[in-house]
Design a protein around this nucleic acid. Structure first.
Lengths: 109, 109
DNA sequence: CTGGATCCCTATCGATACTG
DNA sequence: CAGTATCGATAGGGATCCAG
């Protein structure tokens, strides 16, 4: 089977595979989904993703921040509150992953 | 930002994250693209993907075969010829990744 | 040509403990 | 609450050599 996959040059190919590999890292997709669904606090995210450890959440969150997928807002109360939310870019990434959900549904079983 | 991400249950979520993580493994996307573009022989794929080693191609190909993404056809010549091609399932997976290409183009720079 | 088998190094991840 | 520090296990991946 030979399909029509959009023609892209080397730079675009690199960006593409980079995005897939980034999103494909363990817990990445789950965390992004949890935040998209409204989990904004650290513990809310942890609670939303079974099996996710503090350490991994912390690490992914920092990566997401650096990559511009999430914003981190610190509210100086006692104790301090931290809110995470998707940026437009992060939101767009997740939306772009949506077809993969449909894909898994098509081939379920 | 809270977006609309399709509601899916736990099983679907697991299938989805599984698919992302599978496609996100190193070289996976590149190999799938190369095959989609018409590289069917082992050495053609190697040549199409800079940096890809024989060992990794061999490994990914076996994983793809097991997962039902590619078919492996052996032609008993001397030396033996092996042709790989995407299955419908593999083709569908790749198509589902297409929006990610558009995503990277939107956010290029 | 199409890989399999080894070796070895590193990144990644999980568990646990601790802090402002 | 929202993390950081540390440690040890393991899986992933690169290089190299070999074989049908």
């Amino acid at each position: 089977m030979t399909i029509d996959f959009q023609h892209i040059d080397d730079a675009q190919c690199l960006a593409f595979t980079g995005a897939v590999e980034f999103a494909g890292k363990r817990w990445s997709a789950s965390i992004l989904m949890a935040v998209a669904r409204g989990a904004s606090r650290f513990t809310q995210i942890t609670a939303s993703v079974p099996g996710l450890s503090d350490r991994m959440l912390s690490q992914r969150l920092r990566e997401f921040e650096r990559a511009g997928f999430v914003d981190r807002d610190v509210i100086a109360t006692t104790p301090v509150q931290v809110h995470y939310q998707l940026t437009d870019r992060g939101s767009d990434l997740l939306q772009s992953l949506q077809p993969l959900v449909n894909y898994t549904q098509r081939w379920a079983e």
